[in-house]
């Protein structure tokens, strides 16, 4: 390839066209090579919503279920825990969010979280740390009874999975309540 500044003549055009077509083909060939690493059809299907019966969960208890291979915390909060989560001033939080925005309306006692520390992905321990919420043993992030980050290296609150109440004692994780949104 001669790097001349004059406008390309017909011969150069042929070479450029050939090179371009070859490059486009090469790029297209990369698509399947890359796409194959994405979740396959069976993995996506297995990530279908899971239903959890809340009946057996006692007040003050936190259970762990799995959805899409991720641990989901379901916390049946006590009055005290709810109060503590509500009385804190939002301005003092690293990732401000009100507690009532983190539960479904009228279901203050049920907190459903993705149980993965927003720092580097470990699973925090329940009822531990200075706020009696969650404490991540890997690098010492501390979450409160609303799953919000309070201390430590994690930048964000524990995220909320999509879920909806089927009845007072049954939720389906993996599906947002479309009726009320």
């Amino acid at each position: 390839m001669t790097a001349s500044s004059v406008e390309p003549n017909r011969r150069d055009f042929l070479y450029i066209a050939t090179g371009t077509v070859a490059a486009v083909g090469g790029a297209a060939a990369l698509v399947p090579l890359i796409a194959q690493m994405n979740p396959d059809a069976s993995t996506i299907a297995a990530g279908a919503p899971v239903e959890v019966d809340l009946g057996p969960i006692a007040e003050g208890q936190v259970i762990k279920v799995f959805w899409r291979g991720q641990p989901i915390f379901i916390s049946h909060r006590t009055k005290k825990e709810i109060e503590e989560a509500r009385k804190v001033s939002l301005a003092s939080l690293p990732d401000p969010q009100a507690d009532d925005k983190r539960v479904k309306p009228g279901k203050d006692q049920w907190l459903v979280l993705v149980g993965i520390c927003t720092h580097l992905g470990c699973i925090p321990l329940a009822h531990q740390g200075a706020y009696e919420g969650w404490f991540c043993p890997c690098h010492g992030s501390v979450y409160d009874t609303s799953g919000r980050i309070r201390q430590g290296p994690a930048p964000k609150n524990l995220p909320l999975p999509p879920y909806k109440f089927l009845s007072d004692s049954k939720i389906r994780i993996g599906e947002e309540d479309t009726a009320k949104v």
């Binding site: 698509v31 399947p32 090579l33 796409a35 194959q36 994405n38 396959d40 059809a41 069976s42 993995t43």
Partner: peptide, 12 residues
């Protein structure tokens, strides 16, 4: 599984 579920698995 490759032939049915993996993205472009049949092609590869």
């Amino acid at each position: 599984h490759i032939m049915r579920d993996v993205n472009y698995g049949w092609l590869l």
